[in-house]
Computed example of a mutant assay.
Amino acid sequence: MSGPTLADDCLCGLDGEQRACVEGRVYGPCDHPNCGGVCEMEADCDCPCHHASRTAPTVADADHLAFRAHHGQVDKAGRPYIDHPRAVAAILAQQGHSDHAVMAGLLHDVVEDTPITLDDLRAAGFPEDVVSAVDAVTRRDGETYMDMIRRAAADPLGRLVKLADNANNSDPQRMALLDPADAERRGRRYAKARAVLLAGSAADELDAFWGPFNPAAERG
């Protein structure tokens, strides 16, 4: 089987590497006769060398994907949007959560705010708990903010990601960059969300999220 080389505009930018692409294509040099020199790794590809060498995405891969996906986007204060998912991931990493949690933190807005889909993340090889967490924190068409928060609270990894997201969004320094009325409105919404996300939490978890990162925030 033969195919074209990886497109220059692929969000992954993994030209020449035997890794998954979020666009559902993976190409790389291959000597196996079934590939004809270039292997397109899809479900029906029977090239054993590429399937054996395919590696799982890492935190660095998630960061690269998020950076490419959010390229050109800015937040409400006009700063590069990628700063936010990186801050969420940093909170989770500093708390000692798993690489899967950190990956979900980096990717938590790509489905809601970019053309990337959940199936794209699966095609890229991200673990299902990471994909499920991204789904849990992604607001669906016609869904209210609080309905999404309740879905996030029901997903173990999604709950952690949304708590870290809430902590970063509630940071006084970040809120100070917003219009005062908008900051007040968002503050009320984030406090209401925290009450759902932190329901039944132990004291050490409360301190983990609100001690080091945002001591001024009300816990809800």
Rank of each mutant, 00 (worst) to 15 (best):
R139Y: 02
V111D: 11
A104E: 11
S201G: 15
F126T: 11
V131C: 04
A123Q: 10
N166A: 02
P85K: 07
A217T: 08
G187Q: 04
P180S: 11
R79I: 00
L206H: 11
P212E: 00
Y190C: 11
N169C: 15
T114I: 10
A195W: 02
A133S: 14
H108W: 03
V38S: 14
V22P: 06
D204A: 09
D44F: 14
G28S: 05
R68M: 12
H70F: 07
D63Y: 03
A152T: 05
V59D: 01
H97Q: 15
D129R: 13
L157S: 01
D61R: 13
G28W: 01
T114V: 04
P57A: 13
L65Q: 02
G28D: 02
I82S: 14
V161P: 09
L206Q: 09
R188T: 05
R19Q: 15
L11M: 00
D129A: 10
L206P: 10
R219C: 03
L163D: 08
G37E: 14
R54N: 09
A77M: 10
L206N: 12
R79E: 06
P127N: 00
E23H: 09
A153V: 02
N169D: 15
E112H: 11
P33F: 14
V22C: 06
A133E: 11
D119N: 10
H100A: 08
R139A: 09
R219H: 12
L106S: 06
L197H: 06
A136G: 01
R79A: 14
R122Y: 08
A183P: 04
R188N: 09
L107K: 05
V102E: 03
A202T: 06
R86H: 08
H70T: 08
P80F: 04
S170M: 12
G220R: 09
A191I: 02
D109R: 00
A164T: 13
F209W: 04
R185P: 08
E205G: 07
A202R: 02
L163M: 13
V102G: 01
C49V: 15
D147S: 15
Q173M: 12
E184W: 06
L118D: 13
W210M: 12
C39F: 04
E23I: 00
K162I: 11
A191Y: 06
C10I: 09
A199G: 10
C35Q: 04
P48C: 09
H70Y: 08
L121E: 04
A69C: 05
A183N: 03
N169F: 08
L178Y: 04
F213Q: 01
P85M: 05
T114C: 13
